[in-house]
């Protein structure tokens, strides 16, 4: 059994390394130009944002419509930290990591501050209150002209995010989230999604885990926002409105709530799709929204549902033409 786990870890590491090397080769061979690299970086940022929201919405089961608010906090804090560190002469990647950590911690604290009152609510009401908080954060940023540049935007952010560090930060974030959702804490979080009252009855401190999950989601959203700031080198409060939160939620739902790999696949599809439709000019978003509605109608549970895509069982299937799924034995036919 242990051998199996070791083997699947090894497989995943090989898989990630080969994706990295292929992309690196393509960039080195000028197959991917700067525009393409920028898309790859946006995919990574969207993966971080979507997987972190998936923790709150998919695994914890709490509808959150204000994720862009945490992203905005992270983006601005990270930008301010990096500007302050600019003259210190630190290497770029170290500066990026420090800024991102500060941003993540700050967003996490905001997440706790919002989570404690908001998580008393359930379902749609929670969605609405997080929407409200997201909008309030945006208006506050818009009005703190001396610090954030207000509606004119924040300029002069060091452009220290590049393909390499963004790629590895994304891998680390997804790895941490994967480990978390498969840990004891993660199981507590999932049990709250399945039945809050029952999990409380078996001794899980639901409030603690709800706030914890929410704060971790905010932490990683802050990191995603920070990367966004250091990639674009310009921030405009308008981009962090309600529609941004919705965009992230769409990735999560389309990928499957409670499936990290689903979020990754959906983030790739939904970041490339609008770019690929660019030649249709004005019809681009029309087609995008049409596809979105059609996908939702035909696959309401998302691409993966709550299942994860696993490289080892995929290879196993290729070899023996069947998928081994440990869940199948427990749950019966599903």
């Amino acid at each position: 059994m242990k051998d199996n786990i070791k083997k699947s870890y090894l497989l995943n590491i090989v898989g990630i390394l080969s994706i990295y090397l292929i992309l690196k080769l393509l960039i080195g061979g000028n197959v991917l130009n700067r525009y393409h690299i920028s898309i790859v970086i946006f995919i990574c940022i969207n993966i971080i944002l979507a997987t972190s929201l998936n923790l709150a919405t998919g695994f914890l089961g709490q509808l959150a419509l204000g994720h862009a608010g945490f992203m905005a906090v992270g983006a601005y804090v990270s930008a301010i930290t990096a500007v302050a560190l600019k003259s210190s002469g630190l290497p770029d990647t170290l500066m990026l990591v420090i800024s991102l950590l500060v941003a993540g911690i700050f967003s996490g604290i905001v997440g706790i501050a919002i989570g404690i009152p908001a998580l008393r609510l359930r379902g749609d009401y929670l969605g609405i209150i997080t929407l409200g908080f997201g909008e309030v954060i945006r208006v506050i940023i818009n009005n703190m002209k001396s610090i954030t540049g207000g509606a004119q935007g924040f300029t002069g952010i060091p452009r220290i995010a590049n393909f390499d560090n963004v790629f590895w930060i994304t891998i680390i974030v997804v790895g941490i989230l994967y480990a978390l959702t498969h840990s004891r804490q993660g199981r507590a979080i999932i049990s709250i999604r399945e039945d809050e009252i029952a999990s409380e009855a078996v001794g899980i401190q639901t409030t603690k885990y709800k706030v914890l999950g929410f704060a971790i989601a905010a932490f990683f959203a802050g990191i995603g926002g920070g990367l966004y700031a250091h990639h674009l080198a310009f921030l405009d409060p308008k981009t962090f409105g309600f529609m941004k939160s919705v965009e992230i939620l769409v990735i999560v739902v389309l990928g499957g709530m409670g499936s990290l790999t689903g979020s990754i696949i959906a983030a790739i599809i939904l970041t490339i799709l609008p770019e690929a439709l660019r030649e249709f000019a004005n019809y681009r978003m029309l087609i995008y929204s049409f596809i979105l509605v059609v996908m939702m109608i035909f696959r309401p549970q998302g691409i993966f549902g709550t299942k994860e895509f696993s490289l080892s069982s995929f290879l196993h299937k290729l070899r023996y033409n069947q998928i081994i799924s440990p869940r199948k034995e427990i749950k019966g036919d599903e």
Partner: peptide, 12 residues
């Protein structure tokens, strides 16, 4: 939540 996303899709 799927219906919610559909509503957002229609709005877009």
């Amino acid at each position: 939540i799927s219906a919610l996303i559909t509503a957002i899709g229609i709005s877009l």
